[in-house]
Nucleic acid binder design. Structure first.
Lengths: 329, 329
DNA sequence: ATGAAAGCGCTAACAA
DNA sequence: TTGTTAGCGCTTTCAT
C-alpha cells in the first residue's frame, strides 16, 4: 500500500488515497501489529505517583495491560516521581529519551514540559498524557477522566441524598491543579442548573494533608454549625475525624471524589456515603492500549481525547480489594 | 507448536506441554488471528429482542464490535425473535446451523434448547450465551450482568436516599425468568444485611405491561397508603402514572433497574431518581469480542463467565442519546 | 505419519 | 527512485 517514500506527486497521491477510501480500503491492523513485533517497541511511563495512593490502581492497570499486550512485543519502562517538580520531570524525560519509542506521562502543566514534549515529538517519540493534560503542546492524545462531569455527578447525587436542600462545604485539594478547579466548576454548574436549595457555605483547600484538613474542618464546624453536607476531594481521614469529634457524624452527609483504602474504610463505617470514582485502573489499562495503538496504527486527530467515564460507588458496588479493577477484561 | 495430530503418546505430549509452560511459552494470538482470516468465520446471533427496548443498545454494541473486528475477517449473521417461544428459537438455531462457526444466543432456559446447544457443540459450533444463561448445557461461555449485585446496589442506594427507613414496594417483571428472581434476591439480601428499617410491603409482577402495572400500582396505593419507595423492573410508565394520579409523586422515591428512553424521560421529570444499569451496549460489544476470542484462541474453563458490571445512573451521568454507549472504546 | 512450504497483511531491508 | 523479497507467528495444505 501507500508507503510515503519519495515524491509520488502529491496530486496522484491524493487521487489514490481517495480511491482507497472509496473502495473502503482499511489497512489490517493485525498484519501491521505482527510485522511491528520486530521493532521491539518500548513505551516509557512517567508518573507523579509516589506517595499518592490514587496511582496504585493505575499502575496495576498499566501492568495488566503490559501483560495483555505481550503479543505485540512491547515493553514498558517505568519512572515514578514524588510531587510536581518541573525540573525533576524534565530530567526523567531526558533520561528516557534515547531508549523509548513513545511516552506516557502525567504531565505537569508548565511550558518547559510542553517544550520538551514538542522536541520529543519532532524526534519521532509520540507523547500521550495520562490523567493530567497539558496546554499548548503537540502531545498525540490525552487519556483521562471527565472531571467536570465528576463534579456534576457529585452535586446530583448529593441533591438526591439531601432532597435538594443543603448547606454544603467543599474541601478540595490544591487549586493550583487544573482538575480540582474543574471538579468544583462542575459541581457549581449542576447546582445552578438544578439545585437552588443548595448553599455553598465554604470552599477550602485541604492540601491532601489530614492534619491541615482536620484543623480547617474543625474551625469551619465551629463557625458555621449549619453545615450538613461535605463534598471532599482528599484528606478524608482528617475531615471525618473533625466531624466525628464535633459529634456531627449523623447530621452531615459526606460524598468523596475517588476511592482509596481510607475512603473505603470510611464508607464501611458509614461516614462517607458515596464516591465518584474516575477509574484509575481503567485509565492505566487504556493508556497502554492507546500507546500500542499509536505505535502500530497511529492515532488520528479525532481520537485525541480518550475519556474514561465516572462511576458512582457506594458500599454495595465497591471492590473489596480496594480497587476498581474489573474481574476480567 | 503442538498440533494434536496423530498419536504422539500422551506421555511425551504431557512432558512437552509442561516444558512449554515452564518456559513461559504463550502462543501469539496475533499470528493466530492473522492466519485464521482465511477461514472467514461467521458468528451467528439469535436474540429475543423484538419489541424489547432493552436490546436496542445491545444490538448497537454488537454492530460496533463487528466493525471493530473486521481485521479478523469475521461476519455476523443476525436473527431476532419476539417473546420466548422455545420451538421458534429451535427453528432459528436449525436455520443457522449449517452456516455458522459459533453462536451467540439469549438462550431460553429449557431442556430442549440445552439439548440443541449440546448437539451444536458436538458438531464443532461453540455456543456462547448472552444476557440470559442456561442450565445443564455445554455452552462455552456466558456474557451477562451481575444481577444479584444489581439488586444489592438498588437496595443500598435506596437505603441512602431514604436514610434507612422505608416502606418498599417491588414491581418486577415475570418471575418466570430467573434473572428477575435473582435481582429481588439481591435486594432482599442487602436489606437483611444492612437495612432493618426497610419493610417490604409487597412484591408484584408488572409483566412489563404498562396497563397491568398501572392497575396493580393503583390498587396497591389504595390499600397500603404508607408506601414511600418503589423498586421497579419495567413498565415504568404505568407505575409512574398511577403514582402521579394518586398525588404521591413527591412522597414516593422510585428506583429503576435498567434504563430505556421511557425511564430517562421519567428521570428528567424527576419521578425516577436513579437506575441500576446493566450496560447492554457493553454486553453486546463484549459478546462479539468473546466470540472472536473463542474462534481464534479458544476459551478456557476459567473464562467461562464474563460478567459486565452494573452502573448507577442518575440524571447527571446518563447518556443524552438514551444509550449507555461510551464515546469511544 | 511427518516434514516442508505457502500464505494471512503488513513493513523493512535489499537489490536493481 | 523503484520493485522484490524475507519474515512477524501461526495454520493448513501439500509432498514425501
Amino acid at each position: 500500500m501507500l508507503n510515503n517514500r519519495g515524491r509520488v506527486s502529491s496530486e496522484t497521491e491524493e487521487k489514490v488515497r481517495k480511491m482507497a477510501a472509496e473502495l473502503g480500503y482499511k489497512p489490517n491492523s493485525l498484519g501491521k501489529a505482527l510485522a511491528s513485533r520486530k521493532k521491539h517497541y518500548i513505551i516509557g511511563v512517567i508518573l507523579c505517583s509516589e506517595g499518592n495512593e490514587f496511582y496504585n490502581d493505575m499502575i496495576r492497570g498499566i501492568e495488566q495491560a503490559e501483560q495483555d499486550n505481550t503479543d505485540y512485543g512491547i515493553n514498558v519502562l517505568f519512572r515514578t516521581m514524588k510531587g510536581y517538580d518541573v525540573d525533576h520531570q524534565l530530567r526523567l524525560m531526558n533520561e528516557l529519551e534515547g531508549r523509548i519509542n513513545c511516552l506516557l506521562i502525567t504531565a505537569i502543566n508548565h511550558h518547559k514540559i510542553a517544550q520538551k514534549i514538542n522536541s520529543l515529538t519532532e524526534s519521532g517519540i509520540g507523547v500521550l498524557t495520562l490523567n493530567t493534560d497539558i496546554e499548548n503542546s503537540k502531545r498525540v492524545c490525552h487519556i483521562g477522566a471527565n472531571v467536570i462531569e465528576s463534579g456534576r455527578i457529585a452535586c446530583g447525587l448529593l441533591g438526591l441524598l439531601m432532597r435538594g436542600k443543603a448547606q454544603v462545604a467543599i474541601a478540595t485539594n490544591s487549586l493550583k491543579l487544573l482538575e480540582h478547579h474543574q471538579r468544583i466548576e462542575g459541581f457549581l454548574q449542576a447546582k445552578e442548573d438544578k439545585y437552588p436549595g443548595f448553599h455553598i457555605v465554604e470552599i477550602f483547600e485541604a492540601e491532601d494533608d489530614d492534619m491541615i484538613a482536620y484543623m480547617r474542618t474543625k474551625k469551619l464546624l465551629a463557625q458555621k454549625p449549619g453545615v450538613d453536607a461535605f463534598y471532599i476531594g482528599g484528606a478524608a481521614l482528617g475531615i471525618c475525624r473533625a466531624i466525628e469529634e464535633a459529634g456531627c457524624s449523623d447530621k452531615i452527609t459526606i460524598i468523596s471524589c475517588d476511592t482509596n483504602p481510607t475512603v473505603v474504610r470510611l464508607m464501611n463505617k458509614g461516614m462517607i456515603k458515596a464516591a465518584i470514582c474516575q477509574q484509575p485502573w481503567h485509565q492505566g489499562y487504556k493508556a497502554i492500549n492507546m500507546a500500542v495503538q499509536y505505535l502500530v496504527n497511529g492515532i488520528s486527530k479525532s481520537e485525541e481525547y480518550c475519556i474514561i467515564d465516572n462511576q458512582i460507588k457506594i458500599l454495595e458496588n465497591i471492590d473489596t480489594l480496594f480497587s476498581d479493577q474489573p474481574l476480567r477484561l
